[in-house]
Computed example of a mutant assay.
Amino acid sequence: MLGQVLVLSAEDVRNAVPMSTAIDAVRDSFRELAAGNFVLPPRQIFGDGAVLVMSAYHSPTGTAVVKKIGIALDQVPAIRATVIWTGAGEQLVADGGSITTLRTGAVVGVATDLLARADAIRLTVIGTGAQAPDQVRAVLAVRPITDVTITGRSLDRATALARALAAEFPEVRFTPTTDVEASIATTNIICCATSSSTPLFEADALPVEVHINAIGAFRPTMRELPRALFTTSTVVVDQREAALEESGEVIDAVESGTLDSLIELGPALSDPPAPTARTVFKSVGIGCQDWAIAAALAGIRC
């Protein structure tokens, strides 16, 4: 690739980086982040979150990634993005939408592997948008899931997604529904992937023991999780600074005095938190995740 620009489509990204590879790459990137080997400038936000620009520089390899994202929640796809990865004499331009969903799924795989019970077999995904399939793929890559419930506002969309995933994972039973409370009542793992501005469920509706991933709310005005959940849960975030600036549920919980302790994912990989019945992973997405997938495309390891 020296001296030339490699341009990759969404299909190219998918073919080159399967979910298991993405999870390993993202896990390594968070270890590198904890070691101080990334420079992560604050995310630039334009037009009330309609346009985002993220970047990351990996000091040991001298490589960097920049991603421009356009978000229109009333359109399909909601996310349109381009990723540029560059090194010494090397440059890669790739479809950013596929990288975004892949790296978001991958970080959920990393967190689920760290926090969810090892024998978890039931998964509930709330949301039927572009992020949902990679949430399923990631959790199935790290836990022996046998039953997945796809929960959405539209039963038709939930059914269509369940059928598509059932074709990909024929050994798993997929059930579509619009009933959030019923879908979470006996589950082991929940993935929230919506653009909701209000909590998707009440804390009392959850099982006593459950792991929850929340990746949909990326603005201070958005919330997927109820405030009461934070009083009894171990809470892990991708990056403390980013969560306190962008996660509506984390900001609300901290300001209300409900939450006083945030654990960052990178350090937790080396020093796991003491197990509790309920665990939460909240991600708003940071640049080292995009770098991890782009570096995997370029054949670079941490």
Rank of each mutant, 00 (worst) to 15 (best):
T146Q: 14
P42L: 03
M222D: 03
A228W: 04
F30S: 00
T178V: 14
R173F: 06
T234N: 12
L2A: 06
T151W: 09
R122C: 08
A141H: 04
T128Y: 06
V93T: 11
D156Y: 06
C302Q: 11
F46W: 14
V17A: 05
I300G: 02
V53I: 15
A243G: 10
A94T: 07
S233K: 08
L161N: 02
T221W: 08
S283P: 02
R223E: 13
W291M: 05
P60A: 13
A16W: 02
V51D: 12
C191E: 00
D147L: 15
L262K: 03
A253Y: 03
A16S: 12
I150L: 14
D119R: 13
L206D: 10
I300Y: 08
G49P: 11
L2P: 12
R137M: 08
G62S: 06
G129Y: 01
S183H: 03
F169E: 09
V236K: 08
A111L: 07
I69N: 14
V284S: 03
T221I: 12
R219D: 04
H211A: 01
V83I: 11
I45P: 05
A116L: 01
V250W: 09
F174S: 03
A120T: 09
L244S: 02
Y57R: 10
T258G: 13
T258K: 06
F30W: 01
A166N: 11
A294Y: 07
A56H: 05
A94L: 06
Q289K: 03
D74A: 08
R117F: 06
A94D: 07
S195L: 11
E209M: 10
I293L: 14
V26Y: 00
G62W: 09
A72N: 15
P133F: 12
A162H: 09
R219W: 05
R227E: 15
K67F: 02
S20H: 14
A111T: 07
P170L: 13
T101Y: 11
A185K: 11
E90W: 01
N37H: 13
R173M: 07
C302G: 15
S195E: 07
T128R: 07
V66K: 09
L114T: 09
A205P: 03
E255G: 04
V208K: 13
L123W: 06
C191A: 15
S195G: 08
G70P: 00
V236E: 02
S197P: 01
L115W: 10
I212M: 06
L52M: 05
T258H: 13
T61L: 07
E168M: 13
R27H: 13
S183K: 01
Q44E: 15
R240M: 00
F38Y: 13
R157S: 12
R137N: 14
E241Y: 00
V210K: 06
T276F: 05
I251F: 03
I45T: 15
E90Q: 15
A203L: 05
M19R: 07
P77M: 09
S261L: 12
L52Q: 09
G89N: 10
D290V: 00
G70E: 13
G3S: 05
I99P: 08
T231L: 14
Q75M: 09
D12V: 06
L40C: 04
D74Q: 11
G49A: 10
P226C: 07
A228N: 05
D290H: 00
P77F: 10
